[in-house]
Design a protein around this nucleic acid. Sequence first.
DNA 1: ACAAAAGTGTTAAGAATACACCCATGT
DNA 2: ACATGGGTGTATTCTTAACACTTTTGT
Lengths: 228, 228
Amino acid sequence: MEDMYEDGYTPPILTVDTVIFQIIDDEFYVLLIKRAADPFKGAYALPGGYNAIGETTREAMERTLLTKTGVNCADLRLVEQLYTFDTVARDPRGHAVSVTYMGLGRDIVPAESDKTQNPGFFNVRELPELAYDHKHIIEYAHDRIKSKITYTNAIFSLLPELFTLTQLQKAYETVFGRELDKRNFRKKFLSLNLIHETSELHRDGAHRPAKLYRFNKQELEALARSFD
Amino acid sequence: MEDMYEDGYTPPILTVDTVIFQIIDDEFYVLLIKRAADPFKGAYALPGGYNAIGETTREAMERTLLTKTGVNCADLRLVEQLYTFDTVARDPRGHAVSVTYMGLGRDIVPAESDKTQNPGFFNVRELPELAYDHKHIIEYAHDRIKSKITYTNAIFSLLPELFTLTQLQKAYETVFGRELDKRNFRKKFLSLNLIHETSELHRDGAHRPAKLYRFNKQELEALARSFD
DNA sequence: ACAAAAGTGTTAAGAATACACCCATGT
DNA sequence: ACATGGGTGTATTCTTAACACTTTTGT
């Protein structure tokens, strides 16, 4: 914090990058853009951009996300800072530092204007070639949310307000990438007292309708016991 | 990542700050310096400083830690990036961004030269007035290590190579800030297979000598079951 | 002999796991 | 009536939690 550098101090380039996840048809998707300029022209990348002076990293994240993908941060259900990556050759102008965020939501639709750079959701299990170290960042974010849903109620951010127990279980299975036992899942999850039954039913095809549930709180809270 | 800014792009000030913890006499201590210049002249602060261009945040952390406290990062047993704080009024020259690190070790001795700014370890339960948002950063780091020792073997970083089960339990109690049951602690910890008995004994006063144990690995690994 | 910390085991309650059939609906 | 996903219970094993006395040593 002291004056290591006199007036000649020049900071590195500061960027932000954002990993937006959502579940579509029981698969896990991440929001990417196609790069229109070098470096990595034509490759896919996380939405992000420069962090200007006078702007917090969170503000830069919200601004770049909106500009590059049309996604409004206020429509996300959970946003948190992930990690700060130092990346060699991240930027042609030299060493850069990228503060990354993770955002989770439901029914997020990127805007398709041609000013925005072909934003779209890609299945996390079938990613295209990615610019920079963005593959690594996506894996890091995926690990984070995998572990986060084991000790918090973060799964709410990937579900609609009203949901069936089957949808809830599928959401867990999608993030974990493995199957869970139906009876044990229900018994355990209900014992955590995070959700309550509503009087509404979900009718969907030629079978018994499912009860719809709702989270008690739409804010992050720790679980009484860790999950799975 | 695209050119939001033309050539006129100016990044914010980038700094690093480091939270070094160690246990001394069964109490938890953090390394602080006394600020020699404004802002916050005379207040205590975490060691840190500017991140120069061309230098990674980790390099800046190692450099500033050595310069300001005489502590060599290589002497720490565990170092990890914590979080990146945007802090208003963090720096008189305007908005700044601080990447923070946490370091854990044993028998760390700050250098007392007068070039270094009176570095010293302070009991986390009796902190002096702190500059900036450093109190908040220390609490954040404390929470991180509290939770980290519940699902990893990170406690090794706060213990000597050879240690008794009582020392191990005391280390947990120090970080958690509460007491644990001796018999349950031993039974559970030994069942995790992280440590093994050595043939050496620790003699210390007029009572039965204690067996000394050693960690199987001095690297971070996840626990089979989460702890406490 | 005594003071001090090391070391040790059992019981009871709760949690995790494995596992298969009936229910309510639409067509 | 049948196909489809919704919904439910039990037995076993493992884990946690509560709890007090004996052992070994130095003085």
